[in-house]
Design a protein around this nucleic acid. Structure first.
Lengths: 204, 204, 204, 204
DNA sequence: GATGAATGAGTGTTCATTCAT
DNA sequence: TATGAATGAACACTCATTCAT
């Protein structure tokens, strides 16, 4: 592969996720990559293009992730809690806390205000889609009679909002250390347990 | 009074809240205010100073708001739901949706990544303080026997996270129209009603 | 008198002598005087005018000084060494080391390169005139037979150059402290003594 | 070679030596070099950096010059006056009147008041070092019995002060024309001759 | 593949000065 | 006497981008 191109992407991702798009200059990127500024233009049309490539890559991954989650739903699981755990685990580890995804999410969080397209992506992948997916889960659980029928729109928010809140608290600022990841897991899993305790299904 | 100074602050607030600090130039501000760039320096030391003045003004307001909320708690209210409504109303209308506060919150949301101090402010005024205040409410309600004793840390998150989520969804991007405010109110008040329905106290 | 005007002059003199004309702003001056920048223009046409007033004042003083020195020459003195001492003392204490004169000399030293007029003043009052005066002294001493006839042009340089050198070393940079003044006096008077020891007249 | 870089240095040297550092703008330099302002930053970090490069280059040359002079002292010379002439010639032609060195000296002369480091350099290379070197010469001459023993500190000043004085008069202001150089040579060599005439050694 | 050289447009900031009050 | 308000011109510097090599 073209390692220089990859390096540019890697370092841009890292820097963008730390300081945001406009606060990172081509100079900064090149300094870390170890090339001259003009060389960037051999691989990318312009600065914006680097950014776009990163976001597109993320969109692909996110799309795959959501598909995988939906498949996970229908797969035969031994038990209800097995299903919940598999799904949550996947969403947490391979999405919110995945090195690449986490960085892109930070970028989107920062750039959503300068860039309408980014805002839509953020809204889509961090608010609407997870909520939507959660709604489907609850629908399934309701039709399976595993939880009592109710407004699953609100149920999804009730479930997802604390996770979103904890993610912002632990995962989207400062360095993504193992400690912070663990803090997130503790808070999030406790929430899930409490949630299903109330809602009724979380007993295996 | 010094209208030019006020104008600079107003327009800076507006522009900063739309595009973030560094994406707004002194030239931009002056174009809208109708003065020459050098005139800005008659009123403010430098660009950062404009920003600081806005944040300080917000901090003062936020401090006052939190004090007022705590006082509201101890004031004799006719009923429990009266109290909740007064507090929520104040927090929503005069804080999250107040023209000035809302714009500063957007600024903090944007700038928290470029600026450690701002991140702390954001964390303090939009996460820790509201959560903290909520915890106190639940403590009071518990000792009054109005809700069953339980982990009020988690209770506060359960209560506040959806509000935070709805705020991000409706109040912190795009234009703050009446429609969006109304959508927020509907979602938020529904959540509050459901919450106290479950928790036990919300029957007056 | 107009004390504000005097203050402006005093402080300008001080600051100009420390940093040079262009490195001192009207703002700087006003900060120390305790007035607003626009007020300066009530007393002076512009910044350059302050500078000119100071230089003119110095020129007057220097003119007076040289006249006084020449008079001192013809005054009946008890002895040769009395005459030399009176003249040197006056030139050192009331000229090179006088608070006002010393500061203007520093200014001229700094500004001679930006300003042709200043360079001429400097050349005149710190090189040509002292040399010229010294020449006259030696002429007088020669015709009085007190020193042997010789090239008094060179004699003047031989006499004055070390004084000029010591002045640059001790009096024209850093703060003009009593210690530095004393160092200058020691070096300069030693030179004078040695000089007249060789030349022949310095024995009373 | 990098002609543009050289041009920037050449022209900066010229302009700085005429008006001083702060009175010369990047715009000025670029106008003469024939490049756009931003191009300067391809070759130099900032304006100060241009200045520093010039001063460092001078320091190197001055160091070499002093070493060469000291070597010259110990080299076998046919006669005493040969030695003096070689040394003086070198100090005058390749130091005080050398195109590059002369300009840097003017810069130092101007900037010594704005810049403590420059003042130290000036003091070092135009006062202390030459004086020091001269002292060594006189020490050597004394131990060789070629001049009578005496206070060689003062002797050095007696020798160097007039040269310093003539240098300031002829070499450090206005344009450095051949006429002015010649005037300096005449005055300086006459002084040297007279000096050694008195001191005793100058007869070959 | 990569770079040396250059640039146009822009940024925040300083400063002497003006003028109505 | 003094100042509040404003400005035009300048300044050092940054940055994304271009293009011939």
């Amino acid at each position: 592969m073209n390692t220089t191109r990859e390096k540019i992407l890697d370092i841009s991702l890292e820097l963008f996720s730390q300081k945001g798009y406009s606060a990172v200059s081509i100079r900064d990127i090149c300094k870390y990559v170890g090339i001259k500024e003009s060389s960037v233009y051999y691989y990318f049309e312009n600065k914006q293009n680097i950014f776009d490539v990163l976001l597109n890559k993320f969109s692909e991954i996110a799309k795959g992730m959501m598909a995988q989650l939906e498949n996970g739903l229908t797969d035969g699981q031994n038990s209800f809690s097995d299903g919940i755990n598999t799904v949550s685990n996947c969403f947490f580890e391979q999405y919110l806390m995945d090195d690449f995804c986490n960085k892109v999410m930070r970028i989107m969080l920062i750039e959503q205000f300068n860039n309408e397209d980014v805002r839509k992506l953020y809204q889509h992948w961090l608010m609407d889609e997870p909520l939507n997916f959660q709604r489907k889960i609850f629908s399934a659980l309701m039709s399976a009679g595993m939880i009592t029928n109710c407004d699953n729109e609100y149920l999804a928010v009730k479930y997802y909002a604390p996770i979103y809140f904890y993610a912002q608290k632990w995962l989207f600022n400062g360095e993504l250390t193992e400690e912070r990841k663990e803090s997130f897991r503790i808070d999030a899993y406790k929430h899930i347990q409490m949630f299903f305790g109330e809602v009724g299904g979380y007993n295996g």
